[in-house]
Amino acid sequence: MSVKIKHYPGEEVETKDFREGKVLFESFRPKAKYAWSAGIAISRFLEELKNGRIIATTCSKCGRIMVPPRIYCEKCFKPTDGWTYVKDTGVINTFSVSFIAADASRLKEPIVVAIINLDGASEGMGIVHRIEEYGDWREIKIGMRVKAVWKPPEERTGAITDIKYFKLVKE
């Protein structure tokens, strides 16, 4: 990209060259498996999801009600000092309508995903989740109100997916 450089190295190949064996390769699927400890804060959060409630931690210094909960306030750098429930309703902070899957293939039905600022948490704090029961996706707007739709209690496992999705609700 400099006038002083006359040649830019790199030999381009096509995807079909791999299929047709013109380019040799070795394939391998890694066996990488983990079991992450959820820890103190998120364990409690997951326990409460099982009960159909969303719990946050609080910091007495800056007064924030934080979700997802954590045992430290990252602003004040001190341990958080309380737990409090927040509502399972909130406002769409931003959303997207995804037409592709994680491997970039086309989805049959789009997925709507949103950041939801939860009622009762400090301003702007929220979680990421899916939106369903929305009708036409073109009608979804930032600022709309939503409410969690929970799995029935017997199906909950203590996972973020105990909330099936959020649905739009009328003011």
């Binding site: 992450w36 998120i42 997207s96 989740h129 973020i160």
Partner: peptide, 25 residues
Amino acid sequence: DPILERPIGMNLIWIFALEMNRYMH
């Protein structure tokens, strides 16, 4: 995040889209 986000099926394009939408809004 493996506990809070991966189970929702997150993918990279989504987070850009969320950010772009917020910026436009």
